[in-house]
Design a protein around this nucleic acid. Structure first.
Lengths: 305, 305
DNA sequence: ACCACTGTTGCCAAAAATGCTACAGTTAAA
DNA sequence: TTTAACTGTAGCATTTTTGGCAACAGTGGT
């Protein structure tokens, strides 16, 4: 059931895949059917929507404009379905969460599982990305809830909660740094660093600190995935600086040790939970939002044990 | 040709008229066809859209939400068609102008006629109202261009031009006040006043002045239509205070005399030409916008003769 | 030359929308 | 109360639209 014209749905899918046949596969219809809808659309609008390349279809200028509008309409419809879910009391909804990768490892699954038991008719769509894309998705309505690091304030986004996450040294459990009380940054200089990509930690105080400190570190590796960082740390080859959020699961299973940096300059990153500023929220979204809020405020206190 | 689902168009029309048959008449289809689309829509959405009254159909809560969205989609589509008109170079477009009544008498018809000769494929839809509704229509996209009096600044609206219009005494051509040089407000006290409704001149300096002045005026009549004011003034029964815009045609045909108030306190009203702040404008809209801008800046200089 | 890939078109069946007609119910005037 | 004018709804035949299949024409790479 869709409130959007069939030909526009087809059009969106073709634009997405750049190919009639691929679009047809995803739509579970024949390629000729898709083709005819596109041709009819172009005929009725009086404007070519695609340029036919030997390798497929590329959007024309007019196509780009229309695609933008169609995607907006699709988001509108999703939002509308959320309200209707409230009205018919079915408790059914689809909630889209755009989040940083770390949340999907431990915290988010826990929350969603608990929620799913109470409200089984709510579906979730999780997409991961970096802060910039997460905020963009929240603004456009492509996602209902955003969870990101070090977000700069924007008027179009309402920040439900912000929690400061302390950085700590992440090492193998048997590493010399694991048990050291009151660990400071300078204590880590003997060990090679496992550094994240600049994009991942953009805006964090840790990044600024490492860039301005006089301390001399040797670097073992640069990684663009937290998974890689954790693997290297687990091997005992070096020390990484992460937050409790990144390695919640590993702490619990004692695969990795986390030792907060106790430097007088606060070495922190802030995690933000946000939604679109203007739009009112469907009921299911407000509920899950509160659950996530509680979960992320509890992260810094460590696992309950 | 429409980019919006048939059933939604039907739904909008039924909601507008509160009756299946009336909607069907306007849509030029059978009532049963409309009915079935509505029933199917309700079935697929799982929510009743109307309450069936013996006199017709009234919107349900869910229906109101959907109607709001559908109307927004219709506005989106209109805007889209404007862009497409640019792209296909056909010079075809539909431009909606929300304006105060006075503009429709002389100034706007002149501009539109001249424009229509050069670009015959552009259609216009003119709607008149008071400032509040005009601004609302511009914001929602229901109208492309707004022309209103004494608008308060809003972020959602971009004001292309603001011109100050001096108030003057409007009387019959043979009236004693007609030829008096350097007319002041106190000179008018001997004659009964023809006053506009408060709503029409809300925010103007004239309204404030009349409310705070010490001068004693007798009132002949309150009118909610400028047409009535002009008729009374033409009869020579009293004096009205209007701007050149309101009686441009009557001045030219010498049916009424206009004598600017020369009080040291500026007795003025400001006319504003505005468009939605965020949306980019189709080509035809920007062109006609400039034409209107020139026309309204020329109003205060009087007719060209 | 061949293969894999593209978009497009004709033919025919399946599905959807429509017009007409009739029916059941309420309202308002005669 | 009867009558007339409304209202929304359901059945049936017809028209219109859409879909699936297979074939065709064109391009790019091997």
């Amino acid at each position: 059931m869709s409130l959007i014209l069939l030909s526009l749905r087809y059009f969106e899918e073709v634009a997405r895949h750049g190919s009639l046949r691929k679009a047809a596969d995803h739509l579970h219809v024949a390629a000729s059917a898709v083709n005819r809808q596109i041709l009819k659309l172009e005929d009725e609008l009086g404007v070519p929507l695609f340029e036919r390349m030997p390798r497929g279809m590329r959007l024309s200028p007019a196509g780009e404009i229309i695609l933008y509008q169609v995607r907006q309409w699709q988001r509108d419809e999703r939002q509308l379905q959320g309200y209707l879910g409230d009205i018919r009391g079915a408790g059914s909804a689809e909630i889209r969460i755009a989040t940083i990768e770390s949340m999907t490892d431990r915290v988010l699954p826990e929350v969603l599982q608990r929620f799913g038991q109470r409200f089984p008719r709510v579906r979730f769509v999780i997409s991961t990305g970096v802060t910039a894309t997460i905020l963009e998705q929240v603004i456009t309505g492509e996602s209902d809830i955003g969870i990101c690091m070090n977000a700069t304030h924007t008027r179009k986004v309402r920040f439900v909660e912000k929690v400061n996450l302390s950085f700590g040294a992440v090492v193998a459990p048997n590493h010399p740094l694991a048990q050291k009380p009151s660990l400071k940054l300078r204590d880590c200089t003997p060990f090679p660093l496992i550094r994240p990509d600049t994009e991942m930690f953009a805006g964090s105080t840790l990044q600024r600190l490492l860039n301005t400190t006089d301390l001399q570190f040797s670097t073992l590796a640069h990684c663009n995935r937290i998974l890689s960082i954790k693997s290297l740390a687990r091997s005992g080859l070096g020390v990484a600086f992460l937050t409790r959020l990144d390695i919640a699961r590993e702490i619990e299973q004692q695969e990795l040790a986390f030792n907060v940096l106790a430097d007088h300059r606060q070495v922190k990153s802030h995690l933000a939970l946000c939604v679109a500023a203007d739009r009112p929220l469907p009921m299911a979204t407000t509920v899950i939002l509160e659950q996530i809020r509680q979960a992320i405020t509890a992260v810094e206190d460590g696992p309950t044990n």
